[in-house]
Design a binder for these strands. Structure first.
Length: 281
DNA sequence: CCTTAATCCTGGAAGC
DNA sequence: TGCTTCCAGGATTAAG
């Protein structure tokens, strides 16, 4: 499931391939996957992809400005959330490509290349906005700071507001944007913090350490190409390698690498949670 | 304020 | 082998 490192890898891949390309055709094969202006124009037809932004797990393809745009300096944009099983792939002009039943939106570029949004489980989606400002106002304003950029002070303030278990709070995109079930478990293991500890109890020094570890964890995961459990592939179709470095996620029933004791499994916010009951307090 | 459960959905895996 | 059942979970919503 794409969390920040996976989404960032998609962004990096698309930055190398579709940024600077002009969209000449958009095919919407499933309209119910698109919110907002669900038309080819809404999905950037006749625009050049100016840049790709990311906040947490969400991407935004930003179109260039055309002469008759009211809002000069800021073109329309499409926000994309990959959900659980979504992928955003680029296919070069000479490559083979066959859309299937789960391929919901297709873009064709001036160079003959194509991009496809595919999402079997359809937890993901697209949101068309007339401008980046509008995206940020209507959709991104409710998110916490990006997990790679949030300051310890801001995170501490967020965590301090709630008695929920730390795991639940960190999964909440309004607290910090980008973490999902995999990286929260890995992060708390690295910090030796129990997922069940009330978020409010984390001290400023602990949050400072957590933010440092979070950046390091996510940076390493990005560099490894993200984690592929089943579905995830980047924009070029490559799987990630960070799942090989997971310390707790997916290791139910196995022992802690640090203390050799059996790992604990519980549920927090309805999510399977694996942690070491001895190392994490 | 906080929880659990249900909801959306498909496919892989486990069970019989 | 083939069927059924369970399970995974991001985000949202309702109910307790």
């Amino acid at each position: 499931m794409p969390e920040l490192p996976e989404v960032e890898n998609v962004r990096l891949g698309l930055a190398d391939t579709v940024v600077g390309q002009r969209v000449v055709k958009v095919t919407i094969r499933r309209a119910d996957i698109v919110q907002g202006l669900c038309t080819p124009a809404g999905l950037l037809r006749d625009r050049t992809i100016a840049r790709i932004e990311r906040l947490g797990k969400q991407l935004a393809l930003v179109g260039d400005v055309s002469d008759n745009d009211a809002n000069a300096g800021d073109g329309p944009c499409v926000c994309i959330h990959l959900g659980m099983t979504g992928s955003l792939r680029y296919y070069p002009p000479d490559g083979a490509f066959k859309p299937d039943a789960h391929t919901h939106v297709l873009w064709r570029f001036g160079n003959g290349g194509r991009m496809a949004f595919r999402d079997p489980r359809r937890f993901g989606g697209l949101w068309a906005f007339p401008s980046v400002d509008e995206l940020k106002r209507a959709r991104w304003s409710g998110l916490g700071g990006d997990a790679l950029a949030i300051t310890p002070g801001r995170l501490h303030a967020q965590l301090n507001r709630t008695r929920r278990p730390t795991k639940s709070a960190l999964l909440d995109q309004a607290v910090v944007a980008g973490l999902g079930n995999i990286y929260v478990d890995e992060l708390l293991y690295g910090c030796r913090i129990s997922p069940l500890r009330p978020a409010r109890d984390l001290t400023m020094p602990e949050v400072r350490a957590l933010v440092g570890r979070m950046r390091r964890l996510l940076t390493r995961a990005i560099r490894a190409g993200g984690s592929t459990l089943r579905d995830y592939v980047d924009a070029g179709g490559q799987t990630g390698g960070y799942q090989l470095q997971h310390k707790v996620y997916g290791r139910t029933g196995q022992v802690c690498y640090r203390c050799d004791r059996a790992l604990c499994t519980t549920t927090a916010s309805g999510r399977t949670t694996v942690y070491c009951g001895s190392c994490q307090t």
